[in-house]
């Protein structure tokens, strides 16, 4: 089975935008992979004029929110670092028991990489905004901010279309729909960079080993 990988376009976000942006992206991906009975739920973003769709599964929502919180914690500890979130879908295969007690094997068939570049807010302009010059500066900063926000909205929209295109273009690798209750037809996991980069890398390597299919990195 193929494992397809989709690297989503980099997004430059401010700290307070992480949550909405990630929710939007992750839910959109999962909605496209929720091939069980789905009652779609559309959500209007607050920061952007964008409506995205959730699959309406509360567990999914909870899991995504948890992961996002973890990521935000990580971002706070590691400012100025790119953060990559990986959403992976896999199939579970029962493996014959070996000297590893783990009988379950995950067969990954799809990885989505969400790349965020968290930028620092231009705090300096606000910190000392007593002189008129600084006030002007902060006004400029606000203006820049709104421009930047508009750019981000465009980029986010592009990312959503990137997801849709990918879903359209790559259909063959999606496994047959298992008989599962609920909207979520395929198990998935969300990986965020852990406390150290090396660990994140290790995690990836481990996962690759697990799948046994390092596969095509498109």
């Amino acid at each position: 089975m193929n494992c397809e990988v989709c690297h989503l376009k980099d997004l430059e976000v401010e700290h307070y935008e992480i949550r909405e942006v990630l929710r939007c992206i992750l839910h959109t991906i999962i909605f496209h992979r929720a091939l069980g009975l789905v009652r779609p739920k559309e959500i209007d973003l607050e920061l952007f004029e964008i409506t995205y769709v959730q699959c309406g599964d509360l567990k999914v929502e909870k899991k995504i929110d948890e992961k996002i919180e973890q990521l935000i914690g990580w971002v706070e500890k590691h400012p100025n670092k790119k953060s990559q979130i990986c959403l992976s879908f896999y199939e579970v295969k029962n493996k014959q028991a070996s000297w590893f007690t783990n009988k379950i094997e995950r067969l990954y068939w799809e990885h989505w990489y969400v790349n965020l570049n968290v930028v620092q807010q231009p705090k300096t302009a606000y910190a000392r905004s007593h002189s008129s010059k600084d006030i002007v500066d902060s006004e400029n900063a606000l203006e820049e901010r709104s421009i930047r926000r508009a750019c981000l909205e465009t980029s986010l929209r592009e990312v959503l279309f990137q997801i849709i295109r990918f879903v359209n273009d790559k259909k063959d690798h999606v496994p047959p729909i298992p008989n599962r209750e609920g909207a979520i037809s395929f198990p998935y996991e969300i990986t965020i960079p852990s406390s150290s980069d090396s660990a994140f890398g290790m995690d990836m390597i481990k996962r690759m080993l697990q799948t046994g299919h390092p596969t095509m990195l498109s």
């Binding site: 959109t28 047959p176 729909i177």
Partner: peptide
């Protein structure tokens, strides 16, 4: 047949998301 059905499901999901974008 099932593959076709699955793909049309995917297509419809992406349609659902697209109309809102």
């Amino acid at each position: 047949l099932s593959s076709f059905y699955k793909k049309s499901m995917l297509l419809l999901r992406s349609l659902y998301a697209t109309v809102r974008l």
